[in-house]
Simulated scan of single mutants.
Amino acid sequence: MALDWLNAGRADGIGFVFTDSDPIVGVDLDDCRDPDTGAIDEDAQDIIERLDSYTELSPSGTGYHVLLKGDLPDGRNRRGDIELYDTARFFTVTRNHVDDTPARIARRQDALVAIHREYVDPPEATSKGYATNQTGSGATSRKSDPEASGTIGGAERALSDEELLEKARGASNGDKFERLWRGNTGGYESHSESDMALCCLLAFWTGGDPTWMDELFRRSGLIREKWDEVHYADGATYGEKTIERAIATTGEFYEPDSDSKSSASERTASTTSAVETSDTAVSDAEADSDLHRERAYFAEKTRLLNQRISDLEETIAQKDERIATLTDDVERLKREIGSECDEMTK
């Protein structure tokens, strides 16, 4: 009906209004696409691939609209240039469908919850003692007590850089740290995964201090020009975003033992436990990457199967319609032949 009105010149365009009575959720990704080159920033690409539902270009050509079925989680619905809506919102429908995305609106509840948690309403802003810029600057900001000497996660710079590196090299995962520190990317499928792994280790040892992490990373063999390149529509650099995600991934931070009365065995046990936590965080980050690839593969596989099923159903419907037409023709011919026979016998 709406298309008929548009094609007849009775409307200027098509829009969709989100209401409480429908299951549709809209994801609005602004300022994430270069309209001249078609280049898309990494966050938007990640969101589009994981939601794996109908996606089209926004009217400006600088963003995307993703439509899916699901229940929008509670909490904030906007962060930077990413907005999620399920009611009281209007989307202009451009019909400029993005290639390699489904042509239908799919139910993607699990992906929606994950995207909301990671990109729009992350829990780490309050649970880990630091905050990301709510206006979307992308850089991890320092949120601390004035008496905490500008620290994050509770660890002061009681160590020099060299002392920190010495402790990191001597830990149970020290071999991994040393390889990454020297710029060895072996065992990782991409340089970016190596960057993330080293940043997770640095997050642990620096107490989640983004400035200190950045200073140390620039001394490592992994540093490259990409670190300072702006890769996100909010102006964040690749390095800033990597550090932010590493801190969010790390569940526990190293705290220098300030109690001189504690025994050496207690300090060793405490540090060993914390280092194991750091190693687990890195392993989790690597596993998340593998899991994401597996999910993307199975999502694409499912999408192709669903499309195949849809095509087969359409083919069956066409054949059923053809059979019905032929059946009508046969009945008509029988009647005509019967009439002719009656005429001949008279």
Rank of each mutant, 00 (worst) to 15 (best):
E294C: 01
E193P: 02
S283V: 07
A285W: 05
V282F: 00
I243G: 03
A103K: 09
T140P: 02
E56K: 12
M196S: 08
R182E: 15
E163N: 07
G150I: 08
R108M: 07
D36I: 12
F298T: 06
T87L: 08
T211G: 00
G15P: 04
T132L: 07
G251D: 06
E83H: 03
A299Q: 04
Q45I: 04
T249F: 02
R157T: 14
D28E: 09
E189S: 09
G150D: 06
H191P: 01
E225H: 14
I14K: 12
R95F: 14
T140C: 02
T277K: 09
D41C: 10
L305C: 08
L112S: 04
D161G: 04
V98M: 07
E83A: 06
S192L: 06
V93H: 10
I152N: 11
E124C: 03
E300L: 15
E244V: 09
G26W: 08
S289G: 05
R79Y: 14
T315E: 04
G186I: 04
S144W: 15
K334P: 04
R76A: 14
M344A: 06
P146Q: 03
N184K: 10
C341I: 12
D46L: 10
G38M: 02
H116K: 05
D214T: 06
E163Y: 08
E229V: 14
G239E: 04
G153Y: 12
L216T: 04
S127G: 03
R95N: 14
L112E: 05
I247D: 00
G63L: 06
N184G: 13
E266H: 07
A139M: 08
V282E: 09
D195G: 02
L72E: 08
L222Q: 08
V17W: 01
P73G: 15
E244P: 03
K128R: 11
I115F: 09
I14E: 12
T315D: 07
W205G: 01
S58H: 01
E300A: 15
V120Q: 05
V120E: 07
W5Y: 10
T250H: 02
S194W: 00
L84P: 03
R332W: 01
D259H: 13
I337M: 06
Q134E: 11
L180Y: 11
L312R: 07
T135L: 15
E193F: 08
V275C: 12
A287R: 13
F217E: 02
Y238L: 09
T268K: 14
D4M: 05
R79C: 12
T140M: 03
W227A: 01
A111V: 05
D284P: 03
A281K: 01
